[in-house]
Simulated assay, not measured.
Amino acid sequence: MRNLIILLLLISMPLLAQSKIDSLLPVRGFSIAAPQAGHVDKFIGFVEKELVPLQINTLILRVDYNYAYQSHPELRDKETLSNEDVKRLVAMGKKHSINIVPQINLLGHQSWAEDLENLLKVYPEFDETPHIPMMDKYEWPNEHGLYCKSYCPLHPDVHKVVFALVDELMEAFEASAFHAGLDEVFYIGDDNCPRCSGHDKAVLYANEVTKIRNHLALKNRQLWMWGDRLIDGKTTGIGMWEASMNNTHRAIDLIPKDVFICDWHYERPDKTAVYFAMKGFKVATCSWRKPEVSMVQVEDMLKFRAESTPAMRDNFQGNILTVWSGAESFIDSYYKSDDNEQRQMLEMFGAL
């Protein structure tokens, strides 16, 4: 089936190739962890050898604490990218007209498996659920429903810290857009939180998104975010991972329309990009490890743009391939086999 889908798509491409690729898919993106210190040359080489020829024009880099922050050096990873390292990435982006969108996970994803991320490790008072312990050996499911910790969006000091990091990173990358993550937020409005208890979870979530958006807008920067918490997981049947089961989905009607939505679906090519576009948002569909899903998503996006009204067409922005491993391990595996799934998915853009 996968080969059939690939064949059908490639057969259709010569008909599409007469148009400019930017008109077909304005955003042709790749999302990956930022390279580690000492591996910037390797990463730049990969981008120039593999991504540039495939006309990738957007690079989401998950930086988090992998940068030598001056505003809060206590939050740095042990080894970090220097400002000089980042400027080399910036120069690469400018040279090849690649829009680099740096990312720090905000609100959710403040822990992973058995480990707290740096923010809650250094500032435990920001924890939305301090009463829920981290596990010595992580398992899912568990009695506390612990996937990833969140910071408390109503803590009076949390934004002073995270916005300082955001501002510094945006200056370093000379970026016009920032990705705040905001996905898979299972802990919000916890009953035991002295600030959030009793609050409407949708309003809490919407207010946090809006606060981040407004801060970025002060310097004409755009907020990008994952879209899963804005989808009703129960009504759609999509469930708790790629959609919300804790009532944050109503926030879609409460946040500014200039937020860019990265709509990820990894197991099925769900058509929720249409939902976001009809709500007035610009949206890109995101895939991961299944070429057959990614192929359908690209075909869908081409159809949505071709068959929409002029008012809707530009809301369908394109497609983004996500990678959930370190940059170095991904690059190594990318060259091990010609049958690499990410290689197949990236080549979709080259076929346009």
Rank of each mutant, 00 (worst) to 15 (best):
N3E: 15
L4M: 12
L8A: 12
Q18A: 14
I21P: 03
S23W: 05
L25Q: 09
V27P: 04
R28H: 07
G29M: 00
G29H: 02
A33W: 00
G38P: 11
H39F: 11
D41E: 14
F43K: 07
E50F: 03
V52I: 14
Q55E: 15
T58R: 13
R62A: 06
Q70S: 10
H72M: 10
R76I: 01
R76G: 01
T80D: 01
S82F: 10
D85C: 08
K87E: 10
G93L: 09
N99I: 07
I100K: 03
I100G: 02
V101T: 14
P102D: 00
N105E: 05
N105Y: 09
W112S: 10
E114A: 10
E114P: 00
L116N: 12
L120P: 10
Y123S: 03
E125T: 14
K137V: 04
K137N: 06
W140L: 14
H144E: 01
H144V: 00
L146D: 02
Y147E: 14
S150M: 14
Y151H: 14
C152I: 08
P153D: 11
H159W: 08
V162C: 09
A177K: 08
H179D: 04
H179L: 04
D191K: 14
D191F: 09
P194S: 12
R195N: 07
G198F: 03
K201A: 02
Y205D: 03
Y205P: 05
A206V: 02
N207Y: 07
I212Q: 00
Q222C: 03
L223W: 04
D232S: 07
I238C: 13
I238L: 10
G239K: 01
W241Q: 13
M245A: 15
N247L: 15
L254P: 03
P256F: 04
D258F: 02
D263N: 11
R268T: 03
P269M: 00
D270G: 04
A273Y: 08
V274C: 08
F276V: 02
M278H: 13
G280N: 12
G280Y: 11
T285Q: 12
T285F: 04
S287I: 05
W288K: 14
R289D: 14
R289Q: 13
K290F: 14
E292K: 09
F304E: 07
A306G: 12
S308N: 08
V323C: 08
W324Y: 14
S325W: 04
I331G: 08
D332K: 09
D332C: 03
S333W: 06
K336A: 15
S337H: 08
E341F: 13
Q344R: 10
E347R: 15
M348S: 04
